[in-house]
Each structure stands twice: as C-alpha cells, then as structure tokens.
Write a protein that binds this DNA or RNA. Structure first.
Length: 594
RNA sequence: GGGGGUGUAGCUCAGUUGGUUAGAGCGAUCGCCUGUCACGCGAUAGGUCGAGGGUUCGAGUCCCUUCACUCCCGCCA
C-alpha cells in the first residue's frame, strides 16, 4: 500500500463509509465556516470533499493552508445527509472526516487561480503552464490527446502496421519549409536539419522491405505560427504502405479516422465514405482546396452569361472581355431578408479589399425580374438563363463578383463562409470529411513565374508514364491527395514516384539537374535504383485531429508545453543565449543584425 | 516582412467629453461564522494605468515612437 494514499480522489463511494483512508492531492477549494471547514481535495482523477471542525487540533493550521498546497489527509469516510449530497461529483455521496494531515508540497500565492472558468492571458498561462495544466478543461484535453494517440497506435497495429523511429538529426532539404538547423561539433561548419517530416525515411523503410510503416512522428518547420499551427514542432500520424494504389491508402485511412472520430466524439460523421473532390472542382465550387462541406453553399461560374447583349452591366462585361470571370453564390429563399443582410455582405466584401459583391433576388410579377440595385441591368431572358445555370428558384438570391480567376477564388471562398455564417447554415454538431484528389504536379510561382512542385516532389504523376507531356507541365496531375474535415486540412499524402528516371525528368521541369537531385536526395534516389516497390502513404496531423475532437480552435489547447507565437518557451526560457565556449567548440561566431 | 486587436492591483475587468484622492469581483492578510460545495459577513493591504516622448493649466483618456501578447496576410513541398 502506498504511504500517500489508499484511494484516489475519485474513488470513494457510499459503500466505503466507515473506512479509514489516506488521500493525497491539491487543495482545490476551501469553504471556511469558522468552526467547520470544507476542503475540496483534487487529484488527476477527481475531487473528494474533506471536512474538519474546531474540536480537532489541526483545524487552525489547515484553515490557513494556501489553495493548491499538496496535502495528505488521514481520515474516515462518512456518509452525507440527503440534503448535503453533491450530485455534480462522483464522490458526492460521501466525505472524508479529517483526523490529521501532512503538508507534502507547499504553495506560494498563485499567479493565476486554478479553480475558475476565467480566461487568462496567454503569457501567464504559458509561463506557469504547470498550473494552467491543472485546470479542468485543458487537463482533460491533454488526457484526451493521450488516449487518441494510444487508440490510433492500437488501430494501426490491428491494420497490420508496425511503428518505426526515424532520425531527428538529419539533412537539410531544398524543397518546402525553412529548416531548423543544428550545428555539428564533429564536422565543423556543417549542419544537421531537424526533419520537416520523415518523408524520405519512410520511403526508405518501404525500399527496405518493411511493407507497412507508421509513426507518431515529430515534425519541425521553422515557419510563422497560426492558431492551428504551432511554431516549431507538431506531430503527424505518418504512414506508408508498399504495393498499393491510391484506393488502398484511402481504405486504410478512412477506416482509421472513422473509428477514431466515432470513438472520441459525439458529433456525427456526415459520411463514412469520404466524398472525393478533384482539386479543380474544389477550387471552382468552394474557392479553396480545403472546403468546409458543412456549408451547403456552392459557387457557380456564370462568366458565359455575361457575354449576352441583353445584359447592360457594363463594368462586369468589360472585365469579362479582358479575361476576368464571374462567379456567384445562390442563397435559398432569401427574398424576405432585410436589405441590411444584402448590403452587409457587399460591405463586408469591400472590407476584404475587393470590389464588393453585387446581388439581386429572383422575383416574379407577370414575368421574372431581378429585385435589387443591379437587377435592372438584366433582361428577363438573361435572368432565366442564370436560373437554369445555377438551379435558382423564384425567391432565391444571387451574389456575384467579377475578377481574375485566382482573386475570384479567394473572394468567393470568403463570401461562401460569410454568407453561411450570416444565414446560420453551418451545423456545428457534425464532421464533414472529404478527400481532395488529382492535385496538379506543378504550379507557377506567383512572383518568379517559374514552374515549381505544387505539393510533394516525390509524388507519382497520373496517366500513361510513357506519354507524359513535359512540355505542358501544368497539365500533369499527380496521385496526390488531402483529407479535409470541416474546412481544416488534416493531412496530405501521395502515391510516390519510385522510378528514378521519371524522378529526374520531373525535377528537371522544376529546375533541378541530375547532379542536384543526386546530391540533395542522395539517400532516396540511390535507394530507388536498387529495387524499390511501388508505395504510397499519408500523414494526418495529430494535433489538428485532437483539436477537432476536443472542439478547440487553438492548437495550444491540445499541446502540453507549447511555445508562444514568437516560438519562445516562456516557462523554460527557450531559445536562450549560449556561452562563448559552446560557440567556440562549434566553430560559430554570431553576427547579429541590430 | 505587413495589417488588425489587446495592455489599468497577483488574476479577470470597469474607468463617461481630457478634470478632485483611479474603482469592482476573485485572490492575499486579519477578524466573525458548524453543512458548504462559486459558502456568507466585516476590515486591511495591494497601482511606474506596458515603456518613452509630446500636446495641454491638467493625460489612464488625445498625438508620436517603442515593447509585449494575440489574430490574420505573406510563409507552411
């Protein structure tokens, strides 16, 4: 038996009345009645009310104890009268009559209260993270995270995957995010990089013949933070399989995610077979490659209609002639919405730095007409064509904007969210998953205008490999796929290119010659020459999965010891200065910008 | 690198048009209280109003600079 406790703080029940017990934990709350003192004793498992009165010689010292002091209570379990039962806690039918107590850990005056639903500044929470983590909500989030991880490990094992570790100190790679670098003492002037993902290693594991790999893998990227993106480090459920096609990966991952989400959340999954949306279609219908399918609104391209002569909306017509497109969103049955709703959307769109959203409502007297400020520019026939094209009915409204395709995608995607919010169309109690598939292999860099890999340079191109047209690289699609849930990108993956010659060709399109490829990806390109199996995989972001399950908007709420937005650990004081001697040993001198 | 928000007691916040000695709740300290579970009641202490500069008879409040935190854009194969 432990010298500290016979039971934890969530264990004692009516049946235990009369038992002599030890409990240890934190003083969560005191209620001092002068001659009678209630103490809520808290540990990881729950809360037990302990009680002592003035008759006991320990009363006055216990009365003075700071909250959050760790004590051991020696007492007896006693029954509570019916009126004093607390139904909110599992131990609420009993209490522990304190005989004596010991202080196990003293506590200074607290910089932040533990027992409170208040919000606190991020700064103080992160500096005193060990206190913050005692609070109920985040304590439960972290436990949830642990349970999700162990559930996933178990599921992966059941699916025949084995977990392997890959190096943390590895080489810098030219594609992708900024690397975190680690100087090498034994190789002065040279640097390791922390892996942005175990991408090459997991492919090497396949070449090594292990068939099915997974890992709860730490990934390091030196990029700026967001609410759903930790600076520095995050975790992926990294997985890879040999002798598979896209479909095989989909089957495994759908099974895993459906089981996980069903097991840990009460929210309903809209579809257990995730819909598949080609990248191009997603950009058109949702304006983004991470569509929130809880939102029923869909974007339509109506550029053609603006070629008609009986539309007098000259601003848009002229833009269309110069190559712009027109896209719209139809809202169902919004005829009677107040003017403020429509103008609100337009005003909001202008605030987003666009030319705004035009709108009218499909209405009918003797014949159909457009009701609203710009309705008069559209003939009866033009309106009828719009209704056919968009599936709109009398009483529905149309919001539309005109711009170059890329800008138009951005604004219509934002408008789709905004309108859905205003009309309260998004069901918060569901998970809507989808696959986004058929990503283009390459894209044009906005600034340099050069061709670059749009996602993963190791992806396998689609189609007949002998007939790929490298003269039109932007038309080449890849076996590259993302999983999106409620508008959040959960993971991306691909069937990999395991054919060295093809790899060289694709890299040459992106501006790397054979030597550069050999040098930068030596381990992998070399391995592919010695009998590589066809393989593919994916890497769902673990932190984001837990965020969705815990219903949190910020990744720090599901991370035990996160850094702040400037990638500083306020509790441990990282990063920190280092001594001259350490620098000298590494052959490094600092030239800091002022 | 750029844009927005916030910064007042240990914590969470209020503070009017620029106007007397900057307030409240929680926490702390002291006192009272034997059935609370956000216990109750009374008192006390606690402030560089993020920092610096300016305007003004007078600045928590207006202006400029700067710092910190946060959200977003860029970035994140």
């Amino acid at each position: 038996m432990s010298i500290y406790r016979t039971h934890n703080c969530n264990e004692l029940r009516k049946e235990d009345v009369g038992k002599k017990v030890f409990l240890s934990g934190w003083i969560n709350k005191k209620r001092d009645h002068g001659n009678l003192l209630f103490i809520d004793l808290r540990d990881n498992y729950g809360i037990t009310q302990c009680i002592i009165d003035r008759e006991n010689s320990n009363f006055s010292t216990l009365e003075k104890m700071q909250l959050e002091t760790v004590i051991k209570v020696d007492g007896e379990v006693v029954d509570r009268s019916e009126e004093t039962v607390n139904k909110d806690i599992k131990t609420g039918e009993i209490e522990v009559l304190i005989k004596s107590f010991d202080v196990l850990g003293k506590c200074k005056e607290l910089p932040m209260p533990i027992f409170s639903d208040q919000e606190y500044s991020e700064e103080i929470r992160l500096k005193y993270r060990f206190l913050d983590l005692r609070r109920k909500k985040i304590h439960e989030n972290i436990i949830l995270r642990s349970k999700v991880i162990s559930f996933i490990r178990n599921e992966m094992n059941k699916l025949g995957f084995l977990e392997y570790q890959t190096p943390i100190l590895t080489s810098s790679s030219p594609e992708g995010a900024r690397d975190f670098l680690v100087p090498s003492r034994l190789n002065p002037g040279k640097f390791y990089a922390l892996p942005q993902a175990p991408q090459q290693f997991k492919q090497l594991i396949m070449v090594s013949g292990f068939d099915k790999y997974f890992q709860i893998a730490p990934c390091f990227r030196d990029e700026d933070a967001r609410a759903d993106r930790s600076p520095g480090e995050f975790y992926q459920l990294d997985l890879e399989m040999s002798f598979v096609e896209q479909e095989d990966v989909f089957n495994v991952v759908e099974k895993l995610l459906v089981n996980t989400f069903k097991n840990f959340s009460k929210k309903k999954l809209v579809k257990e077979k995730f819909p598949r949306i080609p990248y191009k279609e997603s950009m058109l219908k949702y304006g983004t490659d991470k569509p929130d399918l809880r939102n029923p609104l869909i974007i339509n391209d109506i550029t053609d209609v603006f070629l008609r002569d009986d539309i007098k909306f000259d601003i848009f017509k002229n833009l269309v002639k110069s190559g712009c497109k027109v896209r719209c969103i139809i809202t169902k049955d919004t005829k009677n919405k107040p003017r403020s709703f429509f103008d609100g959307i337009d005003k909001w769109a202008k605030e987003q730095g666009t030319s705004g959203m035009a709108y009218f409502t499909f209405d009918k007297d003797k014949e159909v007409f457009g009701k609203g400020p710009v309705g008069k520019f559209f003939s009866k026939e033009a309106i009828e064509e719009l209704m056919v094209k968009t599936g709109a009915n009398i009483g529905d409204s149309i919001f539309f904007a005109c711009n170059k395709e890329k800008d138009l995608e951005v604004i219509t995607a934002l408008a789709r969210n905004k309108i859905a919010q205003d009309l309260d169309l998004i069901d918060e109690n569901i998970f809507a998953f989808c696959w986004v598939i058929d990503y283009p292999m390459f894209e044009k860099d906005k600034e340099t205008k050069k061709i670059k890999f749009s996602h993963n340079p190791f992806s396998m191109p689609q189609g007949d490999l002998d007939k790929l047209d490298f003269g039109k690289p932007l038309d080449i699609l890849a076996y590259q796929y993302d999983i999106v849930c409620n508008g959040i990108e959960l993971s991306s993956g691909a069937i990999r290119n395991h054919i060295p010659d093809l790899m060289y060709k694709l890299f040459s399109v992106a501006g790397y010659n054979k030597n550069q490829v050999d040098q930068k990806f030596s381990g992998m390109i070399n391995a592919l020459n010695y009998g590589a199996p066809p393989h593919g995989g994916i890497a769902p972001g673990l932190d984001r999965i837990v965020m969705l399950l815990a219903n949190e908007k910020n990744i720090r709420e599901v991370t035990m010891f996160p850094m702040n937005q400037n990638a500083q650990d306020l509790m441990m004081n990282a990063p920190s200065d280092i001594g001259e001697d350490q620098l000298k040993e590494l052959g490094i001198s600092l030239k800091l910008k002022k």
